[in-house]
Design a binder for these strands. Structure first.
Length: 161
DNA sequence: GCCAACGTTGGC
DNA sequence: GCCAACGTTGGC
């Protein structure tokens, strides 16, 4: 039996790399390198091809979910950890036991409309969603199937006035 | 730009 | 193994 599709949330600062930037790349695909947090790394390791991802804009005005992407290549070593000249170089990581992983992901489509963090937080059904919690800094988060569906439902609604 | 939250580092 | 100091994230 095929494993159930999983859902995730990835953060990116749109001034650095936005969902539109991903859509503009050849193949709408990029390698998600630079993750240097163990909990986030473990989530990357759990990702499977075909899993879907909310592309979240952090450090933005407003912060929120911009689009949907799909995992196209499962976890593999992040080459930037071995690149002495790279800002994410990690002298402690060994080639025979890479500490850091990356996945490749492809843009699927933007949400019908941007859903701001403020709106996520105001929705009682999303009270437990990790990104809604105060001080939620993790850049790779798991999203439940019900949270996924609820965010999509919000994105299909008009903004409440 | 401020600062709360929280992960990491390192002295002991 | 504790925990203070420090660095980073990210909302505001």
């Amino acid at each position: 039996m095929a494993p159930r599709r999983q859902y995730w949330l990835l953060k990116s600062e749109p001034k650095v790399f936005s969902f539109a930037d991903l859509c503009a790349l050849p193949g709408r695909t990029t390698g998600w390198d630079g993750v240097r947090n163990y909990q986030a790394r473990n989530f990357l390791r759990s990702m499977r091809a075909g899993d879907l991802v909310f592309f979240y804009h952090s450090n933005a005005e407003p912060p929120g979910i911009a689009g949907i992407a799909e995992i196209v290549l499962e976890a593999h070593p992040d080459p930037t950890q071995f690149d002495r000249a790279h800002e994410h170089f990690d002298a402690k990581s060994k080639r025979e036991a890479p500490a850091w992983l990356m996945v490749d992901l492809r843009a699927v489509e933007p949400l019908p409309r941007f859903v701001a963090l403020d709106e996520l937080r105001n929705d009682p059904e999303l009270a437990a969603m990790q990104v809604c919690q105060k001080g939620s800094r993790l850049s790779v988060q798991a999203v439940s199937a019900s949270e996924w569906g609820r965010v999509l439902a919000l994105a299909k609604q008009k903004v409440k006035l």
